[in-house]
């Protein structure tokens, strides 16, 4: 929903966008607050990349409008405060990383020094390498360096960690956190829910071109009524699965996992039915479950 506070850094207001017969966005309102990390979640085809493209002025809405720093996204001035890492944005293969970074740095009025950007993205040792000779993960990090080189107030990261190994992903997370701590606002789209859970202050869930939910990670998580119960038990999963208040039950290597709508009732019954039950764990469903539920409802 529209943000009643300060002027948002970027916003979509009642935006509709279709490509031929395919509706990409169907009346979307979205406002990015100054500061903090905003995650845009949704399955493939939910309209995440279209939303970013509209806020950057790469595409025009059919109806409604997009704003960047209160102005037109097509104008140069607002885009000077923005850093961008697109999902598909491969750079010229014969240019060296250092050259690409110097080139991008030159577009911004108050950029970071090249070495600083390279260090932050973890590519300081790759500056002399041609971009085409980098591994997929290194290319992603080079693109990240280009996104942050202009010392942006707002950073758009479209699926930034796809293709990164765990270590590189953690490194990127650390840098993103420190950018947010410096006051940079970040819009992140991701398939990895743990990424949103680890980084996001706010989450917007998109599905089929609509905003399905928006709020803090805790609020979104609270949208699901499910609790997960794990225990070592001799009870059979298909039997437990049929109980009232149980959504699903699976068993693997002696561990029974039960997704429950009414955890108190189910727990009481579980404990009564199996005296030998042990290693009990009860947890609130994570963002993944909330997300799956929200997008399934929309489908």
């Amino acid at each position: 929903m529209a943000n009643p506070g300060p002027v948002p850094f970027a916003a979509l207001r009642g935006v509709h966008k279709r490509y031929g017969a395919i509706v990409a966005l169907d009346g979307v309102d979205l406002a990015l607050a100054p500061g903090g990390l905003h995650a845009l979640l949704g399955p493939n085809g939910a309209g995440k990349t279209t939303a970013i493209g509209l806020m950057l002025g790469l595409i025009r809405p059919d109806r409604g409008h997009a704003e960047l720093f209160g102005g037109e996204p097509e104008h140069l001035a607002p885009r000077r405060r923005v850093g961008v890492m697109l999902q598909a944005g491969s750079l010229p293969e014969t240019l060296r990383v250092g050259e690409l970074l110097r080139q991008a740095t030159g577009y911004y009025p108050r950029p970071r020094p090249v070495e600083e950007s390279a260090n932050m993205a973890g590519i300081a040792d790759l500056l002399d390498r041609p971009y085409g000779r980098l591994s997929g993960g290194q290319q992603r990090r080079a693109q990240f360096a280009l996104a942050l080189c202009g010392k942006p107030d707002l950073l758009f990261l479209d699926e930034p960690t796809v293709g990164l190994d765990i270590e590189a992903r953690q490194g990127l997370w650390t840098t993103i956190r420190s950018l947010v701590a410096e006051g940079c606002a970040v819009l992140l789209t991701t398939h990895y829910l743990e990424e949103a859970e680890a980084l996001a202050d706010r989450v917007t869930v998109l599905g089929q071109g609509r905003v399905l939910a928006e709020g803090t990670v805790a609020e979104i998580r609270g949208r699901t009524r499910r609790t997960r119960i794990r225990c070592r038990s001799s009870l059979r999963a298909d039997e437990v699965g049929a109980w009232d208040g149980v959504h699903a039950a699976v068993q693997d290597a002696g561990i029974l996992q039960v997704d429950a709508r009414e955890p108190e009732r189910v727990l009481r019954r579980l404990l009564a039915a199996d005296e030998g039950l042990c290693e009990l764990e009860v947890s609130r469903a994570g963002l993944a479950e909330a997300f799956t539920e929200l997008t399934r409802e929309a489908a």
Binding site: G53, L56, L76, V82, G89, S90
Partner: peptide, 10 residues
């Protein structure tokens, strides 16, 4: 996508 990136950058 380089063209799109160039258009997104200032």
């Amino acid at each position: 996508g380089l063209l799109a990136l160039k258009r997104a950058m200032p």
